[in-house]
Amino acid sequence: MKRPVVLITGASRGIGKATALAFARAGWQVAITARTVSEGQTHAFQVPTHNGQQLPGSLATTLAELQGAGAEALAIPMDLLDLASVDAALDAVLARFGRIDALVNNAVYQSHRLNAPFLELDADEWARVLQGYVVAPHHLTKRALKVMLAQGHGVIVNVSSGAGESDPPLAACDGGWGVAYGAGKAAFSRMAGVIATEFGGQGIRAYTINPGVVATETLHATLGKNGELARKLGAKAPELPAAVILWLATSEAAASWQKCTIPVADFSLDGDTLHLPSGPARRSRPDKRESTVCTL
């Protein structure tokens, strides 16, 4: 049997990059997408940093690390605001590998207006948020899902946010999230449950995860590399959500974790061993839970 293929969006840095490396180490063929092809590349809409510097990370850098790990990998430029590039990315994956066994929707739209206060949010920003958080992921997932259905199996993992599950603790102008980001993530968070309901009997599994606060390049750039706030928030390394995503994609035992938002903070990682949560179920977790240890 051919090695399975995963497509991971937004893999130039952070959770996406860590996830790509986790799948590569597990023996998967890995396709990655992002807007940033090479280090230092700029975009019309990007993360506003506290020091005005460009975020480190690129497709080229991640690809080099994947190849250094011995993975068969493919890097494809993709922009959520450009559906033609979304189509081209999946076309390239199918042309190279002929299949897709897992899709990780991790890429996000970013801009300095993303978390604008309610009265300052304009229609143009709304349109970009809906395109980046809802329309483009749906478009990519719909096309990938058709391939998976023809194969008779496939896994979809959507990386969402707590902003799609609850109200902000602070106003947007004071560091909380705005209505556009919260609404975009809320809509995105509904996608996997619908897929699981409609196609669960046809070999398809779909999950939504909330990674929580993760110590990514973006977090460092917005809060400061030595940010005391990040430590107070209990930021986890990106390898933890990466390990959770890999477990969801590879373990049959993960099937019961569908139709809920999975809090990554409930898991822990000790070397290559992923510890699953135990104890009373939360509203966002499945009803039944047993203590489990999974060695990756």
Results as ranks from 00 to 15, higher is better:
10 G>T: 03
11 A>Q: 15
18 A>C: 13
19 T>W: 05
27 G>L: 07
32 I>S: 14
34 A>G: 13
45 F>C: 12
46 Q>P: 01
47 V>A: 08
48 P>K: 09
52 G>D: 13
55 L>Q: 15
60 A>Y: 01
63 L>H: 08
69 A>I: 07
73 A>Y: 05
76 I>D: 11
80 L>E: 01
85 S>E: 05
85 S>Q: 14
103 L>M: 09
105 N>V: 11
106 N>L: 06
106 N>C: 11
107 A>P: 05
113 R>N: 13
115 N>M: 02
119 L>F: 08
122 D>W: 04
130 L>Q: 02
130 L>V: 10
132 G>T: 06
134 V>Y: 05
136 A>D: 09
137 P>H: 12
141 T>N: 09
145 L>W: 09
145 L>I: 05
152 G>T: 06
157 V>P: 06
161 S>M: 03
163 A>F: 02
165 E>M: 12
172 A>S: 14
176 G>K: 08
180 A>T: 03
181 Y>W: 06
181 Y>D: 13
193 G>W: 04
194 V>I: 14
195 I>S: 10
195 I>A: 06
204 I>R: 11
209 I>S: 06
213 V>G: 09
221 A>T: 09
224 G>V: 08
226 N>S: 05
233 L>P: 08
233 L>F: 14
236 K>S: 14
236 K>F: 10
240 L>D: 11
249 A>H: 01
250 T>G: 02
251 S>P: 03
253 A>E: 14
254 A>V: 03
258 Q>C: 05
263 P>T: 01
265 A>P: 00
266 D>W: 00
267 F>P: 04
267 F>V: 02
271 G>V: 10
276 L>P: 04
279 G>W: 03
279 G>E: 05
280 P>R: 00
284 S>Y: 01
289 R>I: 14
